[in-house]
Design a protein around this nucleic acid. Sequence first.
DNA 1: GTAAATGATTTCAG
DNA 2: CTGAAATCATTTAC
Length: 209
Amino acid sequence: MRPVLPEEMERMVGVIHSKFSAIQMQLKQSTCEAVMTLRSRLLDARRKRRNFSKQATEVLNEYFYSHLSNPYPSEEVKQELARKGGITVSQVSNWFGNKRIRYKKNMGKFQEEASIYTASTVADTTKVWGPRSQASCPSTASSGSSGHFPLTSARDALITLRTLASPRPAPGGGSLWSQSRGSWQGTTPPVSTSPPAGYPSGANSHASH
DNA sequence: GTAAATGATTTCAG
DNA sequence: CTGAAATCATTTAC
């Protein structure tokens, strides 16, 4: 065996270095990938979903059904609803998004709810503090919780009666309260209780992250 | 057990 | 960016 020359040695060190770098990079990449997967699996908020409190759903429903013609709360209103319900503004936005689409998709199912929340809540929580703002926080004890039906207006009485009488409004003549004048639910509300068998799949492309 | 309800996310359009 | 629509993942009711 001949002695290894210094030049050869340097060359070998270089090769080992580059191989080591390559493996290091591979390892880093796969590790990062695994971490990302785990993170998305474990930190996805959907896996820790908690239902909102009664207070939150009440406040949200009150506003929604009080502004059925235009259920798009402004940023300030969202903040107020969030504060009253003890949830975040994002949650309010999520809730309204879900509520709008689900209400439109199946209006019949929400009639009962609508009559409940439109009956007595308009004068209670959403409009009180126009003229005078009471300085102290309301105790939020029970604002119209488990139900009394004041039936303060004829319209509410009509809606209530109609709802109780026919749980499934026929698609043809159901829209007694035709509030769909050019508002958010402009398109055809499909059917109440029997969804169509197939979906027209849209074309998908484009990604932005 | 399942099916419905529900909050959160993703994708796409404006 | 906001909102509609679809979808996911969990909770709740049956």
